[in-house]
């Protein structure tokens, strides 16, 4: 069902690398916006899983990053850009179970090699672009109709 909104709703969050304590805060706020708009529970779940995994990747691997979202009557568009090391082999990184996370990250319950697969699985359109030494940009779209 299309949302009854006149103008697109936009939001933006800064994500700081290494800050595990606030991990998920951007996704939690996006969840509240979507709840207010009466978006279907399953779509909220998929959108916030995708953004939470994206947030985690910035926190684990990058110095900093930014998450932007736009909610239109028919879509949720999410874009995450980071200042990280970049991904050498995207195909390999997309493989379930493949992870380069260090042991201390695994000890905190992350780095199981399911982050990118989780993002792809939960979005209708998934695009990833990465430049070594510069960073990674991920764009995800979820259809509301």
């Amino acid at each position: 069902m299309a949302l009854d909104i006149e103008n697109p709703i936009e939001g933006s969050f800064q994500i700081i690398g290494g800050n595990f304590d606030n991990a998920g805060e951007a996704s939690s706020q996006l969840k509240n916006r979507l709840l207010e708009l009466n978006v279907n529970d399953d779509i909220i779940r998929r959108a916030t899983i995708a953004t939470f995994e994206a947030e985690m990747n910035v926190i684990i691997y990058a110095a900093a990053g930014r998450l932007n979202f736009v909610i239109t009557p028919t879509q949720i568009q999410i874009r995450i850009e980071d200042m990280g090391p970049g991904i050498e082999n995207i195909e390999q990184a997309m493989t379930e179970g493949y992870s380069t996370a260090p042991e201390w990250v695994r000890a905190m319950g992350w780095g199981a090699g399911m982050g990118l697969p989780n993002m792809k699985k939960n979005s209708d359109v998934f695009k990833i672009d990465s430049v070594i030494g510069e960073g990674t940009t991920i764009e995800m779209t979820l259809n509301l109709t």
């Binding site: 179970g97 042991e103 695994r106 000890a107 319950g109 199981a112 090699g113």
Partner: peptide, 22 residues
């Protein structure tokens, strides 16, 4: 799924159930 937990708390002869593939 945590290596340090298994190092610290498991006992010889136990079977380890996990999804960790490190």
């Amino acid at each position: 799924d945590l290596l340090s937990d298994v190092m610290g708390n498991s006992k010889a002869g136990e079977i380890w159930i996990t999804l960790q593939t490190h």
